[in-house]
Structure formats: structure tokens, C-alpha cells
């Protein structure tokens, strides 16, 4: 049983890491094609990518859209979760269902719906319209994570603060939010990574200024290139750094 289990584990890890390993290795290819044989190691594709103005602009756009849309999604989601967890409102089950609903709908359909709405109302496509789409997909996530994290001991602290004369805004800002900080940070980071990586909504809802995945998509049209490998490896590095930070700070603290 044991050797079989280890063998399966090894095979599974090979399968999981194969494409990423190939991606990273051939980003250093000293040649024009990112396929074997490896003709030597070079950093020239990284130089090319890092000096590519369009790509760096797209990267800036992606970071901007990710941070702003995630902050908004988290704010809306946290406030709604607070209301549903603390106040007895009629129809709360329906509202919870409605807020979660976008999670079960394909990004493609959310993008097409927004495109239909924007084209019928004459809203011009931009990074803002893509950002609106990203808030739609991340709001359910932020709401669900905040809602799940709200427990009874926070409620006691909130009551105490209120009894001592704190206004509701002060309670939210000085008591609820700090007590939920690990969950809120997790929701924010997850939203950022989803938005940062999102393609189809950004593809359909932007026009002249585009985000990084859209720019990478247009690189794919010219076929296989080590430059694409280099961008992909850099994006991977950024995401993994985010995940490691999240793992080391938020989740550790959350469990303690």
C-alpha cells in the first residue's frame, strides 16, 4: 500500500508541475522557440519583456484594476455580511442567495450581460467597465468569507462598544473590522489574484487600455515564443509571492 501511495503521489506531482516547469525552463531559451532542445541559457527574453512598453502598461492597469475593484468588493461584501449576520432583516435568505448568485454564473455570461447593458446605454468601454465586472465576480466571495468569519464573541465586543457610546461607524471600523482582519485580508488577497488573472471579462469590456491577461492573449496569436514564457514566469512569481505572504501571515494568525 505504502510504496503504491508514494508512487501515485510522485506521478501526480509530475503531472501538476510539468507545464509550469516547461514554461519556466524555456523562458531562459537562447533561441527563437520555447521547445526542446534547450540551446543555452539566456535572460534576453526577460530583458525584451521588461522593456516592452505595452506589456508594462498592461501590467500597471491590471494591478490598478485588481486593487481598486477588490477594495470595493470587500467593502460592499463586508458591510452586507455585517448587516445579515447582526440584524434580523425580513427576506434575509433571499438576499443572501442573491449576493452569492454571481458565483454560479460563468464569467463569459457575466461579461456578455454587462456588454449588452453598456452597449445599450451607451457607456464607453474602459478599464472602469472591466473593473465593474471584477467587482461583480468578487463581491460574492468577499461577502461569503466575511459572513462565515462572523462569530458570537465579536458580537459581544460590538455590543460592549455600543454600550460605551460608540457610533455604528466606530463599531465597524474599530471593533468589527480589526477582529475580522485575517478573514478580510484573505478575501482581499483572493479577490486581487482573481481579478489580476481574469481574462474574458477584461477582454470583452476593455477597448484601448487593456489588462495583462488580454495583452498576453494577443501575444499568443503570433505563436509560441520564449517571450510569452518569460511573461508567464513573471506572473507566476508574483502570484506565488502573494500566496506565500498570505500563507505566512493571514492563515497562520487565523489558526492561532
Amino acid at each position: 500500500m505504502k510504496p503504491l501511495a508514494w508512487a501515485y503521489l510522485a506521478l501526480a506531482y509530475v503531472f501538476i508541475f510539468l507545464p509550469v516547469a516547461v514554461l519556466v525552463v524555456f523562458s531562459f531559451q537562447d533561441g527563437r522557440l520555447p521547445v526542446p532542445p534547450l540551446q543555452g541559457l539566456s535572460l534576453r527574453w526577460y530583458e525584451k519583456v521588461l522593456s516592452d512598453g505595452d506589456l508594462m502598461t498592461a501590467l500597471g492597469h491590471s494591478a490598478l484594476v485588481a486593487v481598486i475593484s477588490s477594495a470595493l468588493a470587500l467593502t460592499l461584501g463586508f458591510l452586507a455580511a455585517h448587516a445579515l449576520a447582526r440584524v434580523h432583516l425580513p427576506g434575509s435568505a433571499v438576499m443572501r442567495g442573491l449576493l452569492i448568485a454571481p458565483m454560479t454564473v460563468s464569467y463569459l455570461i457575466i461579461a456578455l450581460g454587462l456588454l449588452a447593458l453598456f452597449s445599450q446605454t451607451g457607456v464607453r468601454l474602459s478599464l472602469w467597465t472591466a473593473g465593474i465586472g471584477h467587482v461583480v465576480i468578487n463581491l460574492p466571495l468577499c461577502f461569503a468569507i466575511s459572513f462565515a468569519a462572523m462569530g458570537d464573541h465579536q458580537q459581544a465586543a460590538e455590543r460592549a462598544a455600543r454600550d460605551l457610546g460608540a457610533s455604528e461607524a466606530q463599531v465597524l471600523w474599530h471593533v468589527s473590522a480589526p477582529m475580522l482582519a485575517p478573514a478580510l485580508a484573505a478575501a482581499f488577497f483572493l479577490s486581487v489574484t482573481f481579478s489580476w488573472d481574469e481574462f474574458i471579462i477584461a477582454f470583452l469590456l476593455t477597448r484601448f487600455d487593456v489588462t495583462l491577461p488580454v495583452e498576453i492573449w494577443s501575444m499568443l496569436k503570433s505563436g509560441l515564443s520564449p517571450a510569452t514564457n518569460a511573461v508567464g514566469s513573471l506572473v507566476f512569481l508574483v502570484s506565488v509571492t502573494l500566496v506565500v505572504i498570505l500563507e505566512l501571515t493571514t492563515f497562520r494568525k487565523g489558526r492561532a
Binding site: 491577461p213 498576453i216 507566476f236
Partner: peptide, 12 residues
């Protein structure tokens, strides 16, 4: 871990 690579890049 590869879950966190860009979705487009992963297919590529």
C-alpha cells in the same frame, strides 16, 4: 501551486 499561474499562461 500551479493553480496560481495565470489561467491563460497555464493553457499555453
Amino acid at each position: 501551486l500551479p493553480f496560481w499561474t495565470s489561467y491563460v499562461v497555464r493553457s499555453y
